[in-house]
Simulated assay, not measured.
Amino acid sequence: MTSLPAGSVLSLRSVALAGRDGTRAGTAFSLDLGRGDVAIVQVEDAFDAVSLVGLCLGLSDPANGHARFLGVDWTTRTPVERLRRRRRIGAVLQAETWPTHLSVDESVLLARTFRSGQPRAEVLAEATGLARMFGLPGLPVGPRETIRRATLLRAACVRGFLGEPDMVVIQEQAVEEVSDLALPMAQAIAAAAGRGAAVLWIIANLAARAARLVQTDRVLRLDGRGLMPARIRP
């Protein structure tokens, strides 16, 4: 068995993304994130960005190599076991996608309740604090179709950082485009890393203001040539 770095949270070893036709696309790459690590990975191709999210969250299997979360290979787990493990991951993605059978506030709180078993009042207080940090007066209440897109985006940020996930994965281009989200996003990332979470931000534009504010351990670029060092653009 391949040895993992001590405290490894996410380990992608010699993986390659699947192409649009289901075959291997691009050069194999490796990425290891430990507790408290923050990495920004620029992926300009939207399909590749979604594919990378799938590998990290165990939603899809790599075309080759291994994808592990907390030392466990996703491919060794059943769909139900994968779902349970994903409860330990916070994700800021698909900000406009919400369960139709739940109000937005219930959807936000549900993930945290599953993850921790905390009393609802405590979870609500934590969510309200995060909502205010992200520029909302409180947690949005009501069905998704009654809430503005800009508010849903901020609620998605609350949903991703709520609780104490072992890993946070961010892949939502709209976050990059809203300048007043830059500071709270950087603060949320720093707080999560300070608690020992690994944070991976899959970003399209390294010139985004938020990327310049984040204190990161690594800045990388993923394309057909593999994973390479990159720099935040001034």
Results as ranks from 00 to 15, higher is better:
residue 55 L to R: 00
residue 222 L to R: 00
residue 86 R to Q: 12
residue 233 R to A: 11
residue 159 R to M: 04
residue 45 D to C: 02
residue 182 A to K: 04
residue 73 D to K: 07
residue 14 S to R: 14
residue 37 D to Y: 13
residue 31 L to K: 03
residue 136 L to D: 05
residue 223 D to Q: 00
residue 183 L to C: 03
residue 197 A to M: 10
residue 143 P to H: 11
residue 49 A to I: 00
residue 104 V to C: 13
residue 33 L to V: 03
residue 228 M to N: 05
residue 42 Q to C: 10
residue 124 L to F: 12
residue 170 I to Q: 01
residue 171 Q to Y: 11
residue 142 G to W: 05
residue 214 V to S: 01
residue 135 G to H: 10
residue 141 V to N: 09
residue 97 T to R: 15
residue 145 E to C: 07
residue 130 L to S: 05
residue 139 L to Y: 08
residue 192 A to T: 05
residue 145 E to Q: 13
residue 152 L to T: 11
residue 228 M to W: 07
residue 80 V to N: 06
residue 84 R to Q: 10
residue 162 L to K: 14
residue 93 L to V: 15
residue 187 Q to C: 08
residue 117 G to A: 07
residue 201 W to D: 00
residue 57 L to W: 09
residue 171 Q to F: 12
residue 128 T to G: 08
residue 148 R to P: 08
residue 173 Q to C: 08
residue 10 L to C: 05
residue 59 L to H: 14
residue 95 A to F: 15
residue 151 T to C: 14
residue 22 G to T: 00
residue 107 S to I: 06
residue 130 L to C: 05
residue 68 R to K: 04
residue 110 L to M: 14
residue 171 Q to I: 09
residue 139 L to P: 07
residue 221 R to I: 02
residue 112 R to Y: 04
residue 208 A to L: 03
residue 112 R to N: 05
residue 233 R to G: 02
residue 65 G to R: 01
residue 154 R to H: 13
residue 69 F to W: 10
residue 14 S to V: 07
residue 224 G to Q: 10
residue 153 L to G: 12
residue 199 V to F: 00
residue 18 A to N: 06
residue 97 T to N: 14
residue 12 L to M: 10
residue 94 Q to G: 12
residue 39 A to H: 01
residue 68 R to M: 15
residue 157 C to W: 06
residue 76 T to D: 08
residue 213 L to I: 07
residue 67 A to R: 05
residue 21 D to K: 03
residue 107 S to Y: 12
residue 141 V to H: 09
residue 161 F to I: 03
residue 157 C to P: 09
residue 79 P to Q: 09
residue 215 Q to F: 02
residue 153 L to F: 15
residue 111 A to E: 04
residue 80 V to K: 13
residue 159 R to F: 14
residue 127 A to V: 08
residue 186 A to S: 13
residue 143 P to E: 14
residue 167 M to S: 06
residue 116 S to V: 03
residue 71 G to R: 08
residue 149 R to M: 12
residue 171 Q to N: 13
residue 44 E to P: 03
residue 126 E to K: 09
residue 3 S to H: 11
residue 59 L to R: 15
residue 148 R to I: 09
residue 11 S to G: 15
